[in-house]
Design a protein around this nucleic acid. Structure first.
Lengths: 159, 159
DNA sequence: TATTGTTATACTCTATAACTATA
DNA sequence: TATAGTTATAGAGTATAACAATA
């Protein structure tokens, strides 16, 4: 026997608690706060997320594009940007192609803050996986990517 | 060359955006809401989480234990329980061993609701991974488990 | 005196609605 | 008329503080 009474393979059933655990880690472990603390960053999560979003994009982004990438609505980004501008971490520059739009770019300080955060996370992951054989790392990376793509496809397939 | 300027292996750097993606999926994809909708469940997320927590425990839990497993504070659970009791999905029974404490158990309806939710999630995962070779599933399950354990260890090592 | 849980309150994050300016 | 963004407001989710009852 390989399946449960529901017709679901056992290895999938075993995955369920792991995904719950994963959700808890993402939502309530305060991992982000701890990383920021270690990196010496005093920002709230939404502000940090905007910073990371623009930094990893590699070029200035519109407000709407930031909202899309963060999967939040526009007004939320606007509110966060007030704070980031006041702290001189980001600034608005007019979009030369469309005078309705604003391009958001990071200041040198903002960019450095984002890079410091990313560097710290990477350090955490590196330490956590220090004992992993290189093939396992690559396999995990590959399977996780596929899993997320498949789940995202399943999500958008519904509606 | 195998490493970045930070001394982090490239495969780890590639993992970073995946983890961001994972966080977005857990936090803002409304996956839980969609699953509940498909399962015909009209509850808010915290209430559903309490239901799942007690159901998967397999036996009644104290309020404090539910809070611990959900990684939230006690008062939050208390508030959710009001709603669950009012809807006859859970009930309080006195703890025979400690008269300060309450044991929370699910009603048959509550238990059925939780099982319906879990069955639906499992169905989603099954469909998402329908094309996966069995060995890949097992490998993914194993590596994800290890990854979560290692990361959790890293989290508690800090403080 | 420490612990279990509740009540009351406040805070964080994000959404919706109404609006302005430009396309 | 449609789109980019802002302002103002509302809601969901969770935390903190003060308290009651029992250990």
């Amino acid at each position: 026997m390989d399946d449960t009474a529901d017709g679901c393979p056992l290895d999938l059933a075993a995955l369920l608690p792991r995904l719950t655990q994963l959700g808890a880690l993402a939502n309530r472990s305060h991992m982000m706060e701890r990383i920021m603390e270690q990196a010496g960053i005093a920002l709230d999560r939404p502000a940090m997320t905007v910073l990371i979003t623009v930094e990893t994009a590699g070029h200035p982004l519109r407000v709407g594009e930031i909202a899309k990438r963060m999967q939040v609505v526009g007004p939320h980004v606007t509110r966060v940007l007030h704070d980031l501008e006041r702290r001189d971490l980001a600034r608005r520059v007019p979009d030369p192609d469309d005078r309705r739009a604003q391009l958001i770019e990071l200041t040198p300080t903002g960019s450095a803050t984002a890079r410091r955060y990313l560097h710290t996370v990477l350090g955490w992951i590196t330490e956590a996986m220090a004992d992993w054989p290189a093939p396992d790392r690559q396999t995990f990376s590959r399977l996780l990517t596929r899993f997320l793509d498949d789940l995202a496809a399943r999500l958008s397939a519904i509606e």
